[in-house]
């Protein structure tokens, strides 16, 4: 038997891939199909479903009430992505231009908060942001700089802040990777041809790091769009995103088909974003 194994690499590959393939088919792919299928079923009386086909859930999902939540979530995720890109690019550039030792130190310092528990990191902002008892407002009012507490909590600002805080390293790392792969001689060539610094950036650096920009944007946009903890904690129960609506459909409203329909749309959006990314990367080689 071992002899057959050695002679047939195809069999070796099949044995190696079998555990992962079977596990993911049973506990990922099939659940995925079931969620999509549930989107087309009728709601049961006490949670669960009635097995009869309907388009009602998907129609309800594009109803302005819920569609607006989708739009709002997409706007929050989009803003988070843009802010991460704007503040992350200069940082990635700085890190990429340091000596090896300093570069490793800066990367490590970037990753340490990232490796801490996400819930804990989000909770940490509660202490600072809360309207009447948050440290920022208490301090500013104590110093007499403001009379009324600033609206730092329970709104989109707080959610975006929490998301930027949570996912910034996901933006910086791909940008850093792209920047550190840049061939310095290209920059020299551009400068030698009397291109001003700004042109070197827009014509050479930016286009060459575009795959990094795309990867970072995907890595920030997707978890931001599906955010649950951040809006639940920093949105103060008022400012909700689509993740919280899905959560409510399962835990409060017991409307599983509708919750499934919302999840299906969310998954669809993710796949679209990812496909767009792969097309961009492939076109750029």
């Amino acid at each position: 038997m071992i002899e057959t194994l050695r002679r047939r690499p195809g069999l070796q590959a099949a044995l190696l891939i079998f555990p992962a393939a079977s596990f993911l088919v049973v506990f990922f792919l099939m659940p995925l199909f079931i969620v999509v299928a549930y989107s087309f079923l009728e709601r049961g009386k006490y949670g669960g479903v009635v097995w009869s086909f309907t388009l009602e859930n998907l129609q309800r999902a594009v109803d302005p009430l819920y569609f607006n939540t989708f739009l709002r979530s997409a706007r929050i995720a989009g803003l988070t992505t843009v802010i991460c890109l704007l503040i992350g690019y200069p940082l990635a550039y700085l890190i990429a231009t340091q000596s090896d030792r300093r570069r490793n130190f800066l990367l490590l310092a970037l990753m340490i908060p990232f490796w801490s528990n996400f819930l804990v990191r989000t909770y940490a902002w509660l202490t600072l942001l809360r309207t009447n008892t948050g440290l920022i407002n208490v301090t500013l009012m104590g110093l007499g700089l403001i009379r009324e507490p600033l609206p730092l909590f329970g709104n989109d600002f707080a959610i975006i802040l929490g998301l930027v805080y949570g996912w910034l390293p996901d933006m910086v790392l791909p940008l850093y990777a792209a920047l550190s792969r840049l061939d310095p001689s290209l920059l020299e060539a551009a400068s030698d041809l009397y291109a001003p610094g700004r042109r070197v950036f827009t014509r050479v650096v930016w286009p060459l790091t575009l795959p990094g920009v795309a990867a970072g944007s995907i890595l920030v946009f997707i978890p931001s769009l599906g955010a649950f903890i951040t809006p639940a904690l920093l949105g103060g129960g008022k400012s909700l995103m689509i993740g919280n609506v899905i959560n409510n459909q399962f835990l409060a409203a017991h409307d599983w088909p509708f919750g499934s329909a919302l999840s299906t749309i969310m998954i669809g959006l993710m796949l679209l974003a990812t496909l767009a990314y792969f097309r961009l990367v492939r076109r750029r080689g």
């Binding site: 506990f27 978890p223 899905i246 959560n247 399962f250 499934s260 969310m266 993710m270 796949l271």
Partner: peptide
């Protein structure tokens, strides 16, 4: 990796 954890959680719950 791509699918947000809330969607994956729902999938597994139903499953």
């Amino acid at each position: 990796i791509i699918i947000p954890d809330i969607a994956m959680a729902i999938m597994l719950l139903i499953w």
